[in-house]
Simulated assay, not measured.
Amino acid sequence: MTPTAKTVLYVRVSTAGQTSDHQLTQARAAGYEIKDNHVITDHGVSGVKTVLKERDQGRRLYDLLQPGDTLLVRWVDRLGRTYSDVKQVIEHFNAMGVTVKTVINNMTFEADYKLEDPTLRAARDAILAFMSAIAEADAKAKAEARQAGIDHVKASPDAKRKYRGKPPSFDRATFAQVQNMLSQDGVTISEIAREAGISRQTVHRIKDDPVKAEEALTRWGM
């Protein structure tokens, strides 16, 4: 690594109740020196539905990381949950000279310039393909288990009372504010998200399916 090289920890937490603190603590306990301003966190973002470069903070990595840097994640599923997404992201950063490491099991995917030997590069790529497949299989298994639980609850006699789904990340006033701003010419999704205090993904959900957003508010008595 060059004298100016840095280690950047990327954290993705999918629910409001989760924080990045435990992942940072775990990384530091593993021996990584990470400055507070080198922790990039995406809150409330689905790794299945949103690729890294489309996440609010994930996009920062593409500007922040430089050749010689290290991108650290708890596990490869933080970067994506499908085989193609995980593989594409790590290959992109490796090609630009960034090494990708995981806290769990201390997996290392070296930057291309560090692997002049084609055999070593082939070994790295084989491990990357395997880990990417594992991430997708794990995501699929969890999704199927979740759906099975949802189907079970929906089939119960008091399903309407019990099953309301995930509570909306916005209230009715915010919903109205977003709809009003969406009707204005020249207002970007990022501007709406910043003004309303919600994520870009939430703005997109309201924009793409306002009826569904309204139904969620009603289910939760909001």
Rank of each mutant, 00 (worst) to 15 (best):
L65P: 01
D185V: 13
T41M: 07
M96A: 00
G58D: 05
Q179G: 15
V100G: 01
A148C: 04
P3S: 04
F93D: 01
A176K: 15
N94F: 00
P3Q: 06
P118V: 08
W75Y: 14
S20T: 04
G149D: 05
I189S: 01
V48F: 08
M1A: 09
I127W: 07
I104R: 13
F170C: 04
V178P: 03
P3W: 05
E33D: 10
Y62M: 10
I127H: 03
L128E: 08
K140P: 00
A196L: 09
K166I: 15
L61A: 06
R164M: 11
A159Q: 12
P157H: 08
M1C: 01
R59M: 10
K101R: 15
H43T: 11
N37M: 04
A141Y: 07
A173T: 15
S132N: 06
L79G: 01
E214R: 12
V76H: 00
I40W: 02
K142D: 05
K207N: 08
V51D: 00
V203M: 06
A216H: 06
I127S: 03
T41L: 07
V73G: 02
D36F: 03
R164Y: 05
R164G: 13
I206Y: 04
T70K: 06
V11D: 02
S199Q: 03
A27P: 02
A196I: 12
H43D: 09
P157M: 12
E215P: 00
L64C: 03
R74W: 15
G149Y: 03
D208W: 05
P3N: 03
S183T: 10
D42E: 12
R146K: 14
H22N: 13
A111C: 08
Y163P: 09
R194F: 05
E110W: 09
T218E: 14
K154G: 08
I189G: 00
D185E: 15
G197V: 13
L61D: 03
Q147Y: 10
E215S: 04
R124F: 10
I198M: 10
Y113S: 09
N105Q: 14
E110M: 10
H38L: 15
R28D: 06
I34W: 05
I104L: 13
Q88W: 05
V13A: 00
M1I: 02
Q23D: 07
H38S: 05
G149W: 03
H152N: 12
H152L: 15
D171Q: 11
D151S: 11
H92M: 05
N106V: 07
G221W: 01
R78G: 06
Q18E: 13
G58A: 06
Q179H: 12
G44K: 05
T174K: 08
T19A: 05
S169G: 09
T25E: 14
R164N: 14
D36N: 11
K142I: 15
I134C: 04
H152Q: 15
A122M: 14
A193P: 07
A143R: 12
A139H: 09
V153C: 06
A95K: 15
K101L: 08
R161W: 11
